[in-house]
Write a protein that binds this DNA or RNA. Structure first.
Lengths: 226, 226
DNA sequence: GTGGGATGTCACCGGCTTGTAACCTTGCTG
DNA sequence: CAGCAAGGTTACAAGCCGGTGACATCCCAC
């Protein structure tokens, strides 16, 4: 998954943005001032940089210019963040090589969408992984293989699919209806309680690893976040 | 998706407009006279209002003025619809706080575009946000997760929904009846005092963060503005 | 056809959630 | 300051929800 450097001097904004990007599955590196941003950009060589214009000392425009000057960081696309919606800023930012521009306040959703688009355009792959691993649980989709603590676990087709759907949306609660749609692939000819039964069988087979599967009462099931 | 209140006394016009908005993916609420418009605006708190100027009894300009006077509906952007293309009307409407002005006959396409633009400008993201954060309180809807000062708080399904409804209308007081409608999703087979009990449980679990939940005596509850 | 595994359904149970009522506290009004 | 109404608290019973075991059915391999 793509690595993104987020630069903002306000801790709250930094937290908000990086949380959302992480949720969307990106790897996030942060910096809260201009010189740190330059250092981390050279150190990590991220796939994309989110850069706040208003920074103490070295401001965002300056950082942008310096990043473009260094051949190591020059090709990295940059999205500028700013509170000012002024035309001057926009033009200036774009001239200095920012790929895109987002004015505060922005919706986290919108930001993630722009990031996604930009990365897609840049052809940085963001395909779904064909394997997951959490703690001592390994899931290999093409091999249809699941192991817990290196020991192989045999799952039926339905159990496997259920596990994958949950794992691929790690942290996000899936309602029974949702799971029926995605695992069984048609709408509710099936009793929602059937999901419970399959969860039970899945948990039974996973043994210790069933700790990764949460029940959220009144809502549905969830694969734990960490 | 954004909710839009459409007000027009001609059934044909009402139908035309709401059909097009629904096609564009918006949720539509309708009213065919001024007082109903006011009632529904307060009840549904839409993201935008399309208001015909020519209405029997209370006319559009009057409705506009009244909407602006009520703090609950004041911030909602309004687009005025009128047959008259006169400059006087335009000025009057804008003075009264209409955000935009469309003269009949208009193309449905144009109308939908204006709606889209206005919502975008207002940063009413076309979709509802899937997370909220205020101070040290974080709410993540897909994860069904609430944290206060980074510490996880376990809420029941009802408590969670109540919190989300309040958070999504930050600053606007919600009456007990309103909350019953939106959280419990059917009309008041339930005692309004039940809301109190759930607010208490919610506050208890939120601990310090309950300071974000105001009681407005004689009216209802509110998530604080800032 | 038979046997075994996979799958969907059901009934039951225990516990948590939830609605309600009764009582207490608070703050407004005169 | 007294009285009252609105909201906070407490307690509790009902019932909903999810876990579980049992079972019928289906499908496939043999």
């Amino acid at each position: 998954m793509a690595k993104i450097l987020v630069v903002d001097d306000e801790p709250d904004a930094l937290e908000l943005v990086s949380f959302n990007l992480k949720s969307a599955g990106y790897e996030v590196v942060t910096a809260d001032n201009g010189s740190e941003a330059l250092k981390k950009a050279r150190q990590h060589v991220p796939d994309l940089i989110l850069l706040d214009v208003m920074l103490p000392e070295v401001d965002g425009l300056e950082v942008c210019k310096l990043l473009r000057r260094d051949p190591a960081t020059a090709p990295i696309p940059i999205i500028m963040l700013t509170a000012k919606a002024g035309e001057i800023d926009r033009v200036l930012g774009l001239e200095l090589g920012a790929e895109d521009y987002v004015t505060k306040p922005f919706s986290p959703r919108e930001l993630v969408l722009r990031v996604k688009n930009l990365l897609k355009r840049r052809n940085v792959s963001e395909e779904k992984p064909d394997q997951y691993s959490v703690g001592d649980l390994f899931i290999d989709i093409p091999r249809h293989l699941v192991t817990v603590a290196r020991k192989r676990v045999d799952l039926t087709a339905t159990e496997f699919k259920l596990l994958i759907i949950l794992a691929s949306r790690r942290g996000r609660v899936q309602s029974r209806e949702q799971l029926l749609r995605d695992v069984w692939e048609y709408d509710s000819l099936i009793d929602t309680r059937t999901v419970d039964t399959h969860m039970r069988r899945l948990r039974e087979k996973l043994g210790d690893a069933c700790r990764y599967l949460d029940t959220v009462r009144g809502v549905g099931y969830r694969f734990v976040e960490n």
